[in-house]
Design a protein around this nucleic acid. Structure first.
Length: 894
RNA sequence: GGGCGAUUAACUCAGCGGGAGAGUGCCACCUUCACACGGUGGAAGUCGCAGGUUCAAGUCCUGCAUCGCCCACCA
């Protein structure tokens, strides 16, 4: 044991980095294969390599680290597997931006060179977030760190893809998908964010070929008129029934299209007529299938009008709309324009309005995969916590649509499909085929598209453990125990891991999913760079200490509610860290290098305060352990805060001070040292999962056997000693002390003034408790003297009365103002009477007496009796004090 | 359009069938030998609104209002 005096304040910056590297250098966090201890396994939600740590990561990883440290201390063989995600579009965008700065583009570099540039970038910057996680204290098994584009993952992805393809669960075809003209790639439905947009609804005339006037069609997208192949009405719509088989001329270009009837048209919208543009609208594409209509594309990949657009070729889609509207007006074909608010899809990466776009893409057929994923949650094989998210999960799974997985970018897993140059045969395999399986030709070309990043993420829990090989890691740690993630990626990630996990391993990927909230700013706004309201977790760590920051996140992580984070709150918990530091400082100073032994704490030497704090400790151990096991992080944090500050520091440390003085009995002194040491050491272990740094720093200064608190055992049933009697007695002492302090405070007596007090009670047992703990009362209430009497009539004085019959006298004639005391007594009586009235009404209620639980009635009756007695005493003393107030006659009577 | 959540002290939030709580802030007093990142005391809330269930309702049910989020192919 190092006997050293701590600094007066806690300076986290000076110790954190050292402990973080100490832990890693000792391999404390490596999961073992050669043990039969229970496993606790988690895979990290891999952050994007492009990222730097934001609040979402900080919360997510703090909660995971709390679990990892808690279960490690519980004796489990913990695997927390870390890694990063290659983040296809995001990373490609970052590198393309850099290239643009150099006046280059990926197309000028070519695929191979570009890919090399991205890898270079990854090697250089991809570890930023990892080092930030380490700084946060994340106790991952860093020896098993993975990357979703590493060699092993490539094998896993190809293996998964090939199997799904061979089973018909992956198909390729021409469909309308969401297309981002800026990123120039297809997006999945999830990657398209619907947002309200105010635009215009244009009413456009389509002249009838038979010369009988025109049909007016409402559209928000006049530029797509050029791709129209029909005009449709609802078959039930009487107004247009006669038009079936008629033909109309498209406005502005020389093209004739039929009028058709289809259920998709809503008669009440616009004019009840819908223009059909199969290549640029999801519904219209379906209509074209039903009616065997052509599907001309009028735009290019970058959103420019193409040769099908005739005179409008080359215009950007936005510009084209203006020109078309203009031309329609000139031609007299624009009937009217209304303001119109509707929702439009935007690219989740760059916020560009997505274009519904007909193209050849690869899809996962999700229906057959979703069924087992639904069933597994229904059966409870995977538990979603809080369970309120189950409904959202089921709703999404029930209505799941096929998943577009091909992306027209270069950074990612290239689809393992090869096209024969001569016969167009497509071969899907884990390795490049030597010749075409259909025609035998050897000229093959690999598919250009890469896979959606989330395709590899979906394999993360098992691919990161070695799948498709049958590794010992899989056997030991899969299914994982728990997944901690935010609700924002419930569909993107959790749902897809469930589907893929069940498909490829036959087992759920995790037993429990803990879904946590989003971190917002103090105003409840989502943090974003554009809003400028981002609170940087690294800044918070540096400013307030990582432990204070982590504690804040834990304390605010209530299930099912977003977190509004404010720096003031973190400052509050920095004070808590400082409080712990100083409590430890006090204890270490008083140990004076002595190592307490268990014999010091033999029952005979333990005093009331000792037995009380040991009993309280025991119940805190139980409650905290239960809270962690049930993901009630805030409850665990608050329990520890309350115990450490308001029980251990406020009461125990104060109560025990006299016993620590050199004048005290040696046995008492030794016992107190022992209890102080024991409770502090236990508290540090209890708190370690949330505040790893300060607890390690202090723990290292206490006597114990271990090398690190991070691998010490969590306090359990053997910690502390339950003692109801001690808790009851201490409660009485605390009540009496509180009443005396209250008297002093309310009567304006200076804290330094040492009172003489008299306590009177008729209850022999209470009197005995007070008598045997006389010293505590004197110390804690800062008294000069204390009389304990059974009955009698003490001198005129201020008085306070406890509900359970203890009267407290503070004889201070000449010091206190009797008028003030009378006022105080009146106020006290007011409060009592309000409460008594309420209780009286309740007890008089026949329904309450007959229907409420017996113990509830008894408790209320007892409460009523005690408060009644207390009121009688106050009335008595009001009379006494009133007599002592000098006659008013002496005052001015003007 | 459908769904979910929130509404409790000035602020941020716990509590979710039997005495309205915490942290921060505020007021008063105190530099007492662990800590002023501290101590002691205090003020502060018709627990969004309206009904209902119950002996008893921030706490359960219904409706409404306001705010937030998610999902959704009316052009």
């Amino acid at each position: 044991m190092q006997s050293q005096i701590l600094t007066k304040g806690y300076y986290p910056q000076e110790i954190e980095a050292a402990w973080a590297s100490f832990w890693l250098s000792k391999d404390f966090f490596q999961a073992r294969l050669d043990t039969d201890r229970d496993s606790f396994s988690m895979v990290i939600p891999p952050p994007n390599v492009t990222g730097s740590l934001h609040m979402g990561h900080a919360l997510n990883n703090t909660l995971q680290d709390i679990l990892a440290r808690f279960w490690r201390m519980q004796g489990s063989n913990v695997l927390w597997l870390p890694g990063t995600d290659h983040a296809g579009i995001a990373t490609q965008n970052v590198v393309e931006k850099i290239l643009a700065g150099e006046g280059k583009s990926r197309h000028t570099l070519g695929r191979e060179e570009f890919s090399k540039r991205v890898w270079d970038w990854k090697e250089k910057y991809g570890h930023v977030i990892v080092s930030q996680l380490k700084r946060l204290g994340a106790s991952c098994d860093w020896s098993r760190e993975r990357f979703t584009l590493d060699e092993g993952f490539s094998r896993a992805v190809r293996s998964a893809f090939v199997q799904l393809y061979k089973e018909g669960l992956i198909y390729r075809g021409d469909y309308v998908i969401n297309w981002c003209p800026r990123c120039r790639t297809a997006l999945s439905d999830l990657e398209t964010e619907l947002e309200q947009v105010t635009g215009e609804l244009y009413f456009v005339d389509y002249p009838r070929v038979d010369g009988q006037g025109a049909l007016t069609v409402a559209t928000t997208r006049p530029e797509t008129i050029l791709g129209d192949v029909a005009v449709a009405f609802n078959p039930s719509d009487e107004r247009y029934r006669g038009l079936l088989g008629q033909r109309v001329r498209l406005p502005l270009i020389d093209k004739v299209v039929p009028v058709i009837a289809d259920e998709v048209v809503k008669p009440e919208f616009g004019t009840g007529l819908l223009k059909i543009t199969p290549a640029h609208d999801f519904d219209d594409f379906q209509v074209s299938l039903r009616h065997k209509l052509p599907r001309p594309r009028v735009m290019d990949e970058d959103g420019r009008m193409n040769e099908q657009a005739g005179p409008y070729q080359g215009l950007d889609r936005g510009r084209c709309r203006q020109v078309v509207v203009d031309d329609l007006g000139k031609a007299g074909l624009l009937r009217k324009v209304e303001r119109y608010t509707h929702t439009l899809g935007h690219c989740y990466r760059c916020k560009t309005v997505v274009e519904p776009y007909l193209s050849k893409q690869w899809f996962v057929k999700t229906g057959p995969l979703a069924q087992p994923a639904i069933a597994a949650v229904q059966r409870g094989e995977t538990k979603i916590i809080p369970s309120s998210w189950e409904k959202t999960y089921f709703d999404w799974m029930d209505n799941i649509r096929d998943w577009c997985i091909s992306r027209q970018i270069w950074w990612g897993h290239r689809i393992p499909a090869w096209h024969c140059a001569s016969c167009q045969e497509i071969m899907v395999d884990e390795r490049e085929p030597i010749r075409c399986s259909a025609c035998g030709q050897e000229e093959l070309r690999q598919e250009d598209d890469v896979l959606d990043t989330w395709f590899s993420s979906a394999l993360w829990p098992f691919a990161s453990l070695g799948w498709p090989d049958n590794t010992p890691e899989l056997a030991k740690f899969y299914p994982t125990s728990c997944l901690v993630t935010g609700f924002d990626i419930l569909f993107f990630w959790v749902a897809r891991m469930m589907m893929m996990g069940l498909k490829f391993t036959g087992q759920v990927p995790f037993r429990e999913v803990y879904i946590h909230a989003l971190v917002r700013d103090a105003e409840g706004q989502k943090m974003s760079k554009s809003r400028g309201n981002v609170i940087d977790p690294v800044d918070m760590s540096e400013k307030y200490g990582t432990d204070a920051f982590r504690f804040t996140l834990a304390a605010m992580a209530v299930q099912g509610r977003d977190i509004k984070l404010s720096p003031e709150r973190i400052a509050g918990y920095r004070h808590f860290a400082n409080k712990i530091w100083n409590a430890a400082r006090f204890i270490l100073m008083n140990l004076e290098g002595v190592v307490p032994s268990p014999e010091d704490m033999s029952k005979d030497h333990l005093d009331l305060a000792d037995r009380w704090i040991l009993s309280r400790l025991k119940s805190v151990v139980q409650a905290t352990t239960a809270a962690f096991k049930e993901y009630r992080f805030s409850e665990a944090a608050n329990l520890l805060y309350q115990f450490i500050w308001h029980e251990f520091c406020d009461w125990y440390l104060e109560a025990v001070k006299p016993a620590l003085s050199p004048d005290a009995q040696p046995e008492r002194r030794a016992a107190s040292r022992g209890v102080l040491c024991l409770v502090l050491e236990a508290v540090l272990r209890l708190l370690h999962p949330i505040m790893p740094f300060i607890t390690e720093e202090l723990w290292q200064k206490l006597p114990h056997q271990g090398v690190s608190i991070s691998v010490a055992s969590y306090p359990d049933a053997s910690t502390g000693l339950s003692d109801d009697q001690a808790e009851k007695e201490m409660a009485l002492i605390m009540d009496v002390v509180g009443a005396i302090r209250n008297l002093k405070g309310e009567l304006g007596i200076p804290p330094a003034y040492q009172l003489e007090a008299t306590l009177m009670t008729e209850d022999a047992f209470t009197l005995e408790v007070l008598r045997s703990n006389r010293d505590y009362l004197i110390t804690l209430a800062r008294l000069k003297g204390l009389d304990l009497v059974e009955q009698g009539s003490p001198p005129p004085s201020a008085v306070n009365t406890l509900a359970d019959g203890v009267e407290i006298f503070v004889p201070l004639a000449g010091v206190i103002d009797f008028t003030e005391e009378l006022k105080r007594l009146g106020k006290e009586r007011g409060k009592l009477e309000k409460e008594l009235t309420r209780l009286e009404a309740k007890l008089a209620n026949e329904g309450f007496r007959t229907k409420a639980a017996e113990d509830v009635v008894a408790r209320e009756q007892q409460k009523f009796n005690k408060l009644g007695e207390k009121r009688e005493k106050i009335i008595y003393w009001e009379g006494k004090v009133a007599q002592l107030i000098p006659e008013k006659g002496g005052r001015s009577e003007k």
